[in-house]
Amino acid sequence: MSRKNAISKLTIKGFKSIRSLDRFSLSDLNVLLGANGAGKSSFVSYFQMLSAMMDGQLKAWTLKQGSADRVLSFGVKETQEISSFVKFGLNGYKFTLHPTSEETFVFERERLFFDGPLHGPTWIPLDAGYTEARLPRVYEKETLEAGFRRDAAKYCYESISNWKVYHFHDTSDTALVKRSSSVANGEELDSDAGNLAAFLYRLQEEETEVYENIRRTIKLAIPYFEDFRLRPRKGKSDDEVVRLNWRQTDSRYVFSPSQLSDGSIRFICLVTALLQPDPPSTIIIDEPELGLHPYAITLLGALLKSAASRMQVIVSTQSVPLVNEFSPEDLIIVERDQGETVFKRLDEDSLASWLEEYSLGELWAKNVLGGRPRT
Rank of each mutant, 00 (worst) to 15 (best):
S2M: 08
N5Q: 14
A6Y: 06
A6I: 08
K9V: 10
K9A: 08
L10A: 06
I12A: 04
L21S: 07
F24W: 04
S27V: 13
L32M: 14
A35Q: 12
G37W: 07
G39E: 05
F47T: 04
F47V: 01
L58F: 07
T62A: 09
T62G: 02
K64Y: 15
A68K: 02
R70F: 13
F74V: 11
V76D: 10
K77M: 10
T79M: 05
Q80D: 14
N91W: 09
Y93T: 04
F95N: 08
F95W: 09
T96R: 14
P99F: 15
T100S: 04
T100H: 04
S101Y: 11
E103T: 08
V106H: 01
L118D: 15
H119Y: 15
P121F: 14
P121E: 13
P121V: 15
I124N: 02
E132V: 10
R137T: 11
R137V: 13
Y139T: 03
K141R: 10
E142V: 11
E142I: 08
L144V: 06
A146H: 13
G147L: 06
F148R: 08
R149I: 14
A152E: 00
A153E: 00
C156E: 06
C156I: 15
I160F: 03
W163M: 04
W163L: 06
K164V: 10
H167G: 00
T174D: 14
L176Q: 11
V177T: 06
V177R: 04
K178Y: 03
A184Y: 15
A184K: 14
L189K: 00
S191N: 13
S191G: 03
A197Q: 03
A198S: 12
L200N: 03
L200Q: 02
Y201R: 03
R202Q: 12
E207P: 03
Y211D: 04
Y224K: 14
L230A: 05
R231I: 14
P232A: 11
R233H: 10
K234T: 09
G235Y: 07
D238E: 10
V242S: 02
L244E: 01
L244I: 07
N245H: 09
W246M: 07
Q248G: 14
T249V: 14
V254D: 02
P257M: 03
P257A: 00
I265K: 01
C269Q: 10
T272Q: 00
L275T: 03
L275K: 05
Q276M: 14
Q276Y: 06
I283Q: 00
D286I: 03
P288I: 11
E289V: 01
P294L: 05
I297D: 05
L300G: 01
G301S: 06
A308L: 05
R310S: 06
R310T: 08
V313A: 05
V315Q: 02
V323N: 08
E325A: 10
S327R: 09
P328R: 05
I333Y: 00
R336E: 11
D337M: 11
D337N: 14
Q338M: 13
G339C: 04
K344Q: 12
R345I: 09
E348R: 11
L351D: 11
W354Y: 09
W354I: 04
L355Q: 09
E356V: 12
E357K: 12
Y358M: 07
S359D: 08
L360D: 03
G361F: 02
E362Y: 01
E362T: 07
L369A: 02
G371C: 07
G371S: 08
R372N: 10
